[in-house]
Design a protein around this nucleic acid. Structure first.
Length: 731
RNA sequence: GGGCGAUUAGCUCAGUUGGUAGAGCAAUCCGUUUACACCGGAAAGGUCGGGGGUUCGAGUCCCUCAUCGCCCACCA
């Protein structure tokens, strides 16, 4: 008897003609939305919650392979929890990514020889918003293409009105508590991007440079070493170690003429001076160095700014005035040589601070900016604490668990070194700082609130906020906060945050800060950090190397299931993984294997009913027992986030136990005359296939759902129409 | 300078509380038997980076060295 099976099984599995239809079926069902699952009786209303926010991709273009990894991991977990009966919310969204997006648009404009100031704030922002919208549309298409079962009805954007309101609310509360302040301090100025950036946005690159040892003047007693001679016109002191060889000069003061600039130097004692480096004395430039600024603070030294926002010298000395720092450096060195003041020149390698986004060389400058005070004491529930303490405690107490654990140490180390967070940016795209100024003859007024002040004589601060300020709110702003919405009450704190280890500080730490401070709670219980996807040789993927594996292209070629599996298997938490097209191809073959095994099972099980279990042969009983043990193993692995193990084990079981062994054995059983043995084999095949589809579904949702929709009635009498909401076996 | 990770078969990686070394891919040989050649079968391949220690027993724990990689700090 050759039963008629769906025609589609007569050809190899074709993901291209299957996937978009399947995704549409899921969307139409509404089951990505946990409310629908409850309404339709799929999920119990009192079921445990599993909630997770999608790390919002930047609207800077398209998704890369790292995003695909994130989607594969998160979707697998989300589908697993949904099938286990939890009330499961996966909340999607996108990030405006302030600097990143603005500089992308500026680069595009450069091609037309247009600068942002040519357009003006309003027109420029129009262009950025348009670009952001296009990126958004591409990105959400890609998210769908990966099969991500996110609840689109709750989609959010870090710059939409509800999220902007959340940002202003957070800002005001911190401002009122004195945790956000405006201060004149040394900041990291990016002359190329024309904005300040935070410490975390600095990328250090190794560069070789010349270290000059010189004296300010012939009669000056202490030689100084520097890599930046041009800044020395801004020196206001020389710091020496209190117990060092220049001890006897401490307290003396000198007036010198330096490259045509009069400078006044005081010799001060400071333990920050390393006697072993250079000459054992430091020329203190308070306006253009972080450490010198701190020395200056300790000794009440004056501040002298000699470089402006464009990286040009501001001193009147004719040799230097208006010159760029590099030109000024040459000019100073020439002058020093002419005056025989250079004692030594040596080539050293040092770390050059550059801006992450623009690549500009950071110029430390004193500026009036907005900061979050991380060390300031404030009272919380009658106890004095600081933002730093809140961040540390959340992890130290075990309330938040980071996987892999070693990143907890890295996190603590970062917190120890954390300085106040500069949050104001001189760019146009982003959340405008909710502060307004008004001044008249008598006084200057400052106003901070969620809504603008009344009256038209107020001017809003032109700056925008660091993009991470708004993403710090991401676990709760999309749930409706500051309103106490049902979503907020139900789904916060979230269960899990899954993201790349490269944004542990940028993002994870800031979320812990914001949630801890604003809500007095943790933002998530577990942090799972995935690694970087590298090419088959272990190199970072980059445009210049031409080794980028585009997830979209791979999905088209091999199907989303194959791409997902190749990104999951061999990818432990926190470890970088290597990806090659070969690997993806291998998992495409697996999808086809499942497809064909299904065909065989369907051809042999037309008369099987799974409603009642028949008397099974001893072999089949042991097959089932083995399978049950195996499946509990899988469940445990997923519960412990060992997706790489679970997926690999399933692959192996399906191929080498189910297909190579059980199916092959069943052929003999079916062929012989004892009808009860044959039926036992048929029933076992059907039973295992149905269960395996469920286990495989979180990892390979498309092919399993495509099979599920074509399963004949007798194999799914008590099962739902969609595998998406089938229940996880044995739990 | 401080910290972390990796080092297991040609390649990519597992090896969860210490108990006889595993998988996938590639390569070799055989095979087109009606689920699948996007396949099946067979065989091959490793002194688990080096050295030392703890233990009845170490890929696994401890020490040490080496190579590669990453993160943080930063020196003027």
């Amino acid at each position: 008897m050759q039963p008629s099976i769906p025609k589609k099984f007569l050809k190899p599995y074709n993901p291209q003609e299957t996937e978009s239809n399947i995704y549409k079926t899921w969307l139409d069902s509404g089951f990505f939305n946990p409310d629908v699952c409850v309404q339709k009786g799929v999920t119990r209303s009192d079921a445990p919650i599993f909630s997770i926010v999608l790390p919002p991709p930047n609207v800077t273009g398209t998704l890369h392979i790292g995003h695909a990894t994130m989607l594969a991991i998160e979707d697998s977990l989300v589908r697993f929890e949904r099938m286990r009966g939890k009330r499961t919310l996966w909340l999607p969204g996108t990030d405006h990514a302030a600097i990143a997006t603005q500089s992308r648009v500026e680069k595009n404009l450069e091609k037309e020889k247009i600068r942002r100031h040519d357009l003006g704030r309003e027109e420029f922002l129009k262009r950025v918003h348009q670009f952001a919208q296009e990126s958004h549309d591409t990105i959400t298409d890609q998210i769908r293409g990966m099969g991500a079962s996110v609840d689109w009805s709750r989609e959010a954007y870090t710059l939409d009105e509800p999220r902007s309101r959340a940002v202003r609310t957070a800002f005001k509360k911190m401002y009122d508590d004195g945790l956000i302040y405006r201060g004149y301090r040394i900041v990291n100025w990016d002359p190329k991007g024309q904005t300040t950036i935070s410490d975390d946005e600095i990328v250090y690159t190794e560069a070789s440079t010349t270290l000059y040892t010189f004296k300010y003047a012939k009669d000056f007693p202490i030689p100084i070493a520097t890599t930046r001679p041009e800044t020395k016109v801004g020196d206001t002191a020389v710091a020496v170690h209190p117990e060092g060889k220049y001890k006897k000069f401490i307290g003396t003061e000198y007036d010198v003429d330096f490259v045509g600039e009069k400078i006044h130097l005081k010799i001060v004692a400071d333990t920050a001076v390393d006697q072993a480096f250079g000459t054992g004395a430091v020329g203190v430039t308070p306006a253009h160095s972080h450490t010198d600024w701190e020395i200056a603070q300790r000794h009440q030294l004056p501040l002298k700014q000699v470089i402006d926002e464009f990286g040009k010298m501001t001193v009147p000395a004719p040799l230097l005035a208006g010159k760029k720092v590099t030109e000024a450096r040459a000019a100073v060195v020439d002058w020093l040589k002419q005056n025989e003041l250079v004692e030594k020149e040596e080539t050293i390698t040092h770390n050059l601070a550059t801006a992450e986004r623009s690549g500009g060389i950071i110029e430390p400058l004193p500026k009036l900016q907005w900061f979050v005070a991380v060390n300031k004491e404030f009272s919380r529930n009658g106890v004095s604490t600081t933002l730093k303490k809140i961040m540390r405690e959340a992890v130290a107490s075990g309330s938040i668990k980071i996987i892999p654990e070693r990143f907890e140490k890295i996190y603590f180390n970062w917190i120890e070194n954390l300085h106040d967070w500069c949050i104001s940016r001189q760019i146009w795209f982003g959340h405008r700082i909710p502060v307004w100024y008004r001044s008249n003859a008598k006084k200057e007024e400052i106003y901070c609130d969620i809504e603008p002040p009344q009256g038209d004589d107020w001017t809003q601060d032109p700056d925008t906020l660091d993009t991470w300020f708004s993403s710090g709110l991401w676990t709760f702003s999309p749930l409706g906060w500051p309103n106490q919405t049902p979503d907020f009450k139900t789904y916060h704190p979230t269960s899990l945050l899954e993201t790349g280890y490269d944004i542990l500080f940028f993002w994870v730490a800031r979320m812990i800060l914001m949630s801890g401070y604003l809500l007095d709670t943790i933002p998530f219980h577990t942090v799972y950090l995935h690694g970087l996807v590298r090419d088959s040789k272990g190199r970072k993927m980059s445009k210049s190397l031409g080794n980028i594996i585009d997830p979209l292209e791979m999905t088209k070629k091999y199907g989303a299931d194959a791409v997902r599996l190749s990104l999951l298997i061999g990818t432990g938490p926190g470890n970088d993984s290597k990806l090659s097209e070969d690997k993806i191809r291998g998992y495409k073959n697996f999808a086809n294997k499942i497809w064909n095994a299904t065909r065989f099972v369907l051809e042999n099980t037309a008369d099987v009913s799974l409603e009642t279990k028949p008397q099974l042969s001893a072999k089949n009983e042991s097959d089932l027992q083995e399978f049950k043990n195996f499946s509990q193993d899988i469940t445990t692995d997923i519960e412990h986030y060992r997706l790489y193990l679970a997926a690999e084990k399933l692959y192996h079981y399906f191929w080498h136990t189910f297909a190579d062994n059980i199916i092959e054995e069943s052929k003999k059983a079916i062929a012989q005359s004892d009808e009860s043995l044959a039926h036992s084999a048929r029933w076992t095949l059907a039973y295992l296939l149905v269960a395996l589809l469920k286990f495989l579904h979180p990892f390979m949702p498309f092919v399993t759902e495509a099979i599920w929709e074509s399963l004949p009635k007798n194999l799914k009498t008590s099962e739902p129409e969609l595998l998406l909401i089938a229940s996880w076996p044995f739990h």
